[in-house]
Computed example of a mutant assay.
Amino acid sequence: MRINYPRSERDGVMRFVPSGRQFLALIGMGFGVLLLVFLVLYALVKVPTPNEFSTAQATVVTYADGKTEIARVADANRTSIPLSDVPLVVQREVLAAEDRDFYEHGGFSASGIARAAWNNIIGGSTQGGSTITQQYAKNAYLTQDRTLTRKAKELVLSIKLSQTRSKERILEDYLNTIYFGRGAYGIEAASQAYFKIPASKLTGTQGAVLASLIRSPAGYAPETNKDRLRGRWNYVLDAMVAKEWITEKSRARQKFPKIAKRGSGNRLEGDNRFLVDMARRELSALGFSEEEVARGGYRITTTFDQKAMNAARTAVEDKGPQTGVKGLRIGIAAVQPGTGAVLAIYGGDDYLTDQFNNATQGIV
Score class of each variant (00 low, 15 high):
106 G>V: 14
135 Q>L: 05
87 P>C: 09
86 V>I: 15
148 L>E: 00
129 G>S: 05
105 H>N: 07
145 D>M: 05
91 Q>P: 09
108 F>T: 13
65 D>G: 04
77 N>M: 11
127 Q>V: 10
131 T>H: 04
128 G>P: 05
55 T>N: 11
105 H>G: 07
117 A>F: 07
96 A>Q: 10
150 R>N: 00
80 S>K: 12
135 Q>H: 06
69 E>V: 15
77 N>V: 14
88 L>K: 15
44 L>Y: 12
64 A>N: 12
57 Q>V: 15
91 Q>E: 11
142 L>A: 14
57 Q>N: 12
130 S>Q: 14
48 P>N: 07
44 L>I: 14
91 Q>W: 05
37 V>E: 02
129 G>P: 06
139 N>W: 00
64 A>R: 15
148 L>Q: 00
141 Y>N: 02
134 Q>A: 10
116 A>Q: 07
42 Y>I: 01
87 P>G: 07
96 A>G: 10
99 D>S: 09
86 V>C: 08
134 Q>F: 04
102 F>V: 11
35 L>H: 08
75 D>F: 15
127 Q>A: 11
121 I>G: 05
133 T>M: 01
65 D>W: 02
112 G>L: 05
82 P>K: 12
63 Y>S: 10
59 T>Y: 01
130 S>I: 13
72 R>T: 08
121 I>R: 07
137 A>M: 01
78 R>G: 09
39 L>T: 13
117 A>G: 04
52 E>P: 04
74 A>H: 10
84 S>D: 08
91 Q>R: 15
85 D>S: 15
110 A>L: 15
107 G>E: 02
87 P>H: 09
53 F>P: 03
124 G>E: 03
111 S>E: 13
77 N>Y: 13
113 I>N: 06
36 L>D: 00
149 T>M: 02
86 V>Q: 06
84 S>I: 09
127 Q>K: 09
88 L>E: 15
97 A>H: 08
41 L>F: 13
49 T>A: 11
87 P>L: 06
57 Q>A: 13
82 P>M: 10
41 L>A: 13
134 Q>C: 10
140 A>M: 03
62 T>W: 03
71 A>K: 10
90 V>P: 03
56 A>I: 01
139 N>R: 10
65 D>Y: 03
145 D>I: 08
152 A>P: 00
132 I>L: 07
97 A>M: 10
79 T>C: 03
95 L>H: 08
38 F>I: 01
46 K>R: 14
58 A>G: 05
48 P>C: 06
97 A>C: 12
42 Y>T: 05
38 F>C: 00
131 T>P: 01
146 R>W: 00
129 G>K: 06
34 L>S: 09
58 A>D: 04
61 V>D: 00
77 N>C: 07
97 A>G: 11
65 D>E: 03
108 F>E: 08
152 A>F: 01
120 N>F: 03
121 I>F: 08
143 T>D: 01
118 W>P: 00
61 V>A: 02
49 T>R: 13
89 V>G: 08
101 D>N: 15
62 T>H: 06
95 L>D: 08
119 N>W: 01
40 V>G: 01
95 L>Q: 14
127 Q>W: 05
45 V>L: 02
118 W>F: 12
130 S>F: 03
126 T>P: 02
57 Q>H: 13
44 L>F: 12
41 L>T: 10
120 N>M: 13
109 S>M: 05
